[in-house]
Structure formats: structure tokens, C-alpha cells
């Protein structure tokens, strides 16, 4: 079943036995990455990092989770800030959703994230929610995790054993399951700089503004003239993880965006996506919406969007 935190929380809320206060826990404010990792290990991994808290606090309040220790990572300077590093933009894990809209480096070098940000929740939640938290949670209905796939981003991780970087393609494993092990911290996300020969597009279909999408999609393509040399297309709200549609990508590479090509890419979605049955949206409808959305976005890409 395609699910997301908000609707799960909502159904819990409506179904009687609702606890709205978290179970007692201890609180530790870490000043450095090492302190945070150490505290997690010493709590026997019965701990949670808290960043924006916009998903974790409701989960604790509803007692979907009840760790002994909460480790506040928001005062760790190393997790903050956006800067250019060679051919990449290093976006600190604590970068807030609202900064995706206000930070000039993001608008210039990661415009897909800038375009996706207004669709993430509501303004007050964007004031606190973080990029790292969203990627760590890996909600399949979330905008940013899916965009890391479209952007060919790399996730920078700090573990007690050392640092490593992992490609977004290898990061999302299953429903709310990622390559991140308990006690590991996302420190930053590295995004290749957007280039002059590239175009991007983003949109989603939702019942109401600010709701999780019924289907959403973002893409980045590299062009020579009107010919697509490379394209990465990523969907969200279509299954257990954010999903790249490699079949549709393959139909587009080497051609220009004429109506037949677009139709072929739309046709390929059937092989790329296998939407799960949900109470809300039947699989056939979700696939239909995905086709509609893909058609619109490729149309915009063809117009130079």
C-alpha cells in the first residue's frame, strides 16, 4: 500500500486509541558530529536524531516510535550551509526547506530543488523541516528524496567507522528503508551543478495545495540543440520508494521531444512503475496520472522550460 506519514498519522488520529504525548525520553544537544554519533552508540542505538522534527515529533506524539534518547543535531555547525565544491553543490543536511527557496546558490545551481520546495508541506513546516531529515526519512511520497535521484546526487554519511558517500541510486531500498544504518548521520547532500546545456521540470498532482502528491515527478535533461543526450526522470508517490523510470528515460535518449517520442515515453511507464493497491488511489488511476504528468513535463522540457 502506498502510504505516507501524514495519512498514517491521520488515520491513527481518527481511530480512537490516540496518544498525543510522547513517551518520556532523555534529551541531548550535540555540538559536534562525533558527539552525536557517540551518544547514539552509548544509548545502545535506542535513540533518534532530531533535526526539524516535523516528521519525528508527530511520530513520537503518536507513539509510533518511543526511543530512550533524543539527540538534537540542529546545533552542529558542520551540518549547515550551502557551498560550491568543484563540480558539486554541497547542501548541508540541516538546510531547511524554506532555504531551498531563499538561497541563491540553490536557485542557480540546483533549480530543480528550488522548483520542488513550494510543494513540500506548508510554509511553517518548511521553516523547520530539513533536507537531510527528509532524505533520511525517505517517505516515498516526499518531493526531495525523489529529486536526489533525478539530480544524480550523492548522500554524505558520517558513521562511527568513518565517512562515506553513497549515490542516491543506491540509497533508497524499500518503504522508509535506506542504506543508512541506525546511528549513522547524513551530513550533506552533494548535487552536480546545473549546466547551461541542461533543462529541468517539476510538478505534482495533489488534491489540495500542501497535501502529499497523488503522483509527482521531476527531471533533468542534457541537450545538444533539441536532442536529448541524457535524462533522469524520478517519480514519487508511486510505490514504496522514490522511483527512476529507466525505460521511459531510454526511449528519450538520442531523440528530440516530438509528440511520438513523448507518447513512447508515456507508454514505457507501464513497465517502469508498478503502483501498489491503496484505499485512496487504484493502481490504474495512479499509472494514468503518472502518464499525464510525464506528458506535461516533457512538453515543458521541449519548450525549453
Amino acid at each position: 500500500m502506498v502510504t505516507n506519514l501524514a495519512s498514517r498519522l491521520m488515520s491513527r488520529w481518527i481511530s480512537e486509541e490516540t496518544a498525543v504525548k510522547a513517551r518520556a525520553f532523555s534529551y541531548f544537544r550535540a555540538a559536534t558530529i562525533d558527539q552525536a554519533l557517540d551518544a547514539h552508540a552509548r544509548a545502545g542505538d535506542d535513540a533518534r536524531f532530531i533535526a526539524g522534527g516535523q516528521s519525528l515529533v508527530p511520530a513520537l506524539s503518536l507513539r509510533l516510535q518511543a526511543p530512550r534518547l533524543l539527540i538534537d543535531i540542529t546545533h552542529i555547525d558542520e551540518l549547515r550551509g550551502v557551498r560550491r565544491e568543484g563540480s558539486h553543490l554541497r547542501i548541508g543536511a540541516l538546510t531547511r526547506h524554506c532555504e531551498m527557496l531563499s538561497e541563491p546558490l540553490i536557485a542557480e545551481f540546483a533549480p530543480l530543488l528550488h522548483a520542488a520546495a513550494p510543494f513540500v508541506a506548508h510554509p511553517a513546516i518548511r521553516n523547520r523541516g530539513t533536507f537531510g531529515g527528509s532524505v533520511a526519512l525517505a517517505d516515498p511520497a516526499s518531493e526531495f528524496p525523489a529529486m536526489t535521484l533525478a539530480l544524480d546526487a550523492e548522500i554524505e554519511i558520517a558513521a562511527p567507522s568513518g565517512r562515506r558517500r553513497i549515490k542516491a541510486d543506491d540509497f533508497f531500498i524499500d518503504l522508509f528503508e535506506t542504506a543508512l544504518q541506525p546511528g549513522e548521520l547524513i551530513t550533506a547532500i552533494h548535487v552536480p551543478l546545473f549546466k547551461a546545456d541542461q533543462r529541468f521540470a517539476f510538478d505534482e498532482l495533489a488534491r489540495r495545495r500542501g497535501d502529499y502528491a497523488l503522483v509527482g515527478c521531476g527531471m533533468v535533461a542534457t541537450f545538444t540543440g533539441e536532442r536529448i543526450d541524457d535524462i533522469r526522470i524520478s517519480f514519487f508517490s508511486v510505490g514504496n520508494t522514490p522511483t527512476r523510470v529507466k525505460g521511459a528515460e531510454a526511449t528519450l535518449i538520442g531523440s528530440s521531444l516530438d509528440p511520438e517520442r513523448i507518447a513512447a515515453a508515456q507508454g514505457a511507464l507501464e513497465g517502469d512503475l508498478a503502483p501498489l493497491d491503496s484505499d485512496e488511489v487504484p493502481p490504474a488511476m495512479r499509472l494514468h496520472l503518472a502518464r499525464v504528468l510525464l506528458g506535461r513535463l516533457l512538453g515543458r522540457l521541449g519548450e525549453g522550460a
Binding site: 522534527g53 516535523q54 524554506c98
Partner: peptide, 24 residues
């Protein structure tokens, strides 16, 4: 709602609107 859904609990923290039910 005490889970971020209704907006009744908004306050400003350091000048920005935030849900006070989603902050310890």
C-alpha cells in the same frame, strides 16, 4: 491536533512561524 495538521498552535520562533506542537 498536536501533530502539525491544523495550524492552531503557530508561534514565531526567532522571527519565523513554527508549529509549537512540533517542537519540544
Amino acid at each position: 491536533c498536536e501533530m502539525g495538521a491544523c495550524g492552531a498552535c503557530l508561534v514565531q520562533i526567532d522571527g519565523r512561524a513554527v508549529h509549537s506542537c512540533l517542537v519540544f
